[in-house]
Design a protein around this nucleic acid. Structure first.
Lengths: 213, 213, 213, 213
DNA sequence: TATGAATGAGAATTCATTCAT
DNA sequence: TATGAATGAATTCTCATTCAT
């Protein structure tokens, strides 16, 4: 006898569980850190019991790592954005930075993964390295390509330093860290800061006539 | 019976103890985070026992907060640096950024305080706010003053955005976070990156002729 | 739709299940003891799930006791052997001991029941008493009868002690315990030991001329 | 200020603790088996808390093994007895069997170690092997020596089987197992059974004239 | 009948904190 | 002051048992 109005069947529920648990784990671990989070907190968030969590993940440690992987995977893949860029080098650099900003500093999930990377990174360096390989390195590589192109075409300065791509991305880190530390207590307009950053980095702070050697 | 030649007397030892404990606490909390650090680990680092720690600090929580305050206090006071600046606005901005970099992103202690601020900030917002008031805000205020001065004197662009001071400081955050996440596994030359950042932000990436509107 | 060639029908399966479960339970409990055995281990051995086990046995404890009873029942009934004995008293004693040896010390199932009796006997004295009544006491009684007969007929010594039947059976215990403790790591030839035991107990170790008073 | 009448100082207590805990552990493990014993039960027996147990033993498993070793060590060393034997071979065999009986089947501690060897031996074969090496093998070796001597001197039968020493010891196992299984519910006079066993094994059950070939 | 997801009562182990010495 | 044995609350993880499908 099928009960009417029942949202999810048993099988559906089971298929959903791992995902639900990983989501709840993300919230708890992000809020309290690994050691201070109790498996029971994660379960309670889903109105289930801790036993159920252990049905899907063998240990708290595995749960944490799978959560991290899961949350990382569901973040936007930088390669998607890179392929869509159009216009001059400056335009493409600008667009890539803004898109990356939206996907990272301005995305709560990515920000919290940064928090966990900083907080638990000493314990789990592999985890952080993996994240670096998948998200940070590709974005910096794309910026490098764009800058090289711009230099070649004469659109950008010839004397560009090797660190230029990092500099281009620096305010993304800043906004993310600011958020993580000060949350809503001292809010910043991340978008405006990004715009200002791009403007400065492109045009410089000095008046033309004052340009340094 | 007083032993001659003893390095530190009982009284001296007593006076030193709180300081020693706070230092040891800093190392342990920075390495493992609040929850994962055991009071006994801190004691063992000093070759004393946990009972002695409790002679000076009533709880682990108080010890953590006093450690944070202590480590913050012993960091370089930004106001010292600000007073010493000389030269053109650009020079003073440049020098302030480099000094701040040396005192923060390039200083292990300050970097680890940033890690703790990110990791435990949700639990102890007051702590982070305090740190913001004492170090971040004053530095940004000094940058704001310098920029305003430069704009007034015509050395800097007239259309400078309000966020300019933040942008100036952004790569400091970046270098610090990079260190915290990737440590020595993917080292960066922070100083070179800072130089590149200052150059870009001052002179811009675009060739003069390409300057955006 | 009934599949042709199916080995066991649903009804047959149902009739078999309790037996199968008891057999699987025997293996698991014998290998790991009561407390260390999980109901799921028993189920997995049969490629069924623990729910099914609970369809036939209400609790783990009941399952254990029924397993014990079942395994005991399926052991050879000593009265069968006793009825078949022929020959002189000495022959019949000898044959009874050898048959009992084969049915107990040399029978893995009986040996493991001894293990469980020793391991869990404190918790379940009834269980052990029952086993004693059904197997040990009848065998000893038969030996007593045979010895009495032999004494009466003059075949055996007149001064036989009351404990003689126990002594006759002692090496059966020894071989069983040795197996349980040392398994195949220090194997013994149980049959040879039994033969030696019977010989000694019948003829004595001393030379005739040395016989004790 | 020393309190009068205080039985044990702190240091004394500490020195005693491991021994106390091992004794309590022996009682509990012997009574309930490894898996069914809770560390807290052991602690409660000493009117301490489980935390204290963990101050001296890192895990329940280690505690069990150290308990086993400790209880084994404190059992009588068979070599002591063997050295004291005097008289004819038969006398010495008789005395060795009786002494061994007193030290094993008639000694509660040794009996319970046998129970644990049977119950947990599958899990910890090393433990049992060790016990075999230290107690069982030496005793059987001593019996072998005595028998060989007796055969050489003509005191014992020339056709003695290799298994004779085992047969000599068999009723020791029997009494021990009987105790473990039936405790006080069906008591036996172990001493009398031993005497009967020795008598039979020395003199045989058959009348002289009936001696088998 | 059979399943296996879910539960929740434990049990092992850890560790902040206390306090007698 | 310093110690470290002892405590006991908290936490991870397990598993007998239930029950909806």
């Amino acid at each position: 006898m099928k009960r009417v109005g029942k949202k999810t069947s048993r099988a559906e529920r089971k298929a959903l569980r791992p995902h639900e648990i990983l989501e709840a784990a993300f919230e708890e671990f992000a809020a309290k850190g690994y050691a201070a989070t109790r498996v029971e907190d994660i379960a309670t968030r889903l109105r289930i019991t801790k036993g159920t969590v252990y049905l899907y993940f063998p240990t708290k440690d595995v749960l944490f790592q799978e959560m991290f992987r899961h949350a990382s995977t569901s973040s936007a893949d930088p390669s998607t954005a890179i392929g869509c860029l159009r216009g001059s080098c400056a335009d493409r650099i600008r667009d890539l930075l803004l898109i990356t900003y939206e996907n990272t500093a301005n995305d709560r999930r990515t920000r919290e993964l940064l928090r966990l990377s900083v907080a638990e990174g000493t314990r789990l360096p592999k985890m952080v390295d993996c994240r670096h390989e998948l998200f940070i390195a590709p974005t910096l590589a794309a910026l490098t390509t764009l800058v090289e192109e711009g230099v070649k075409s004469g659109e950008l300065r010839q004397d560009t330093a090797a660190d230029t791509p990092d500099v281009l991305a620096s305010s993304i880190f800043q906004v993310a860290v600011w958020h993580l530390m000060l949350a809503d207590r001292r809010p910043i307009d991340g978008r405006a800061l990004m715009e200002a950053h791009i403007d400065l980095v492109m045009n410089g702070l000095l008046r033309r006539s004052e340009r340094m050697a």
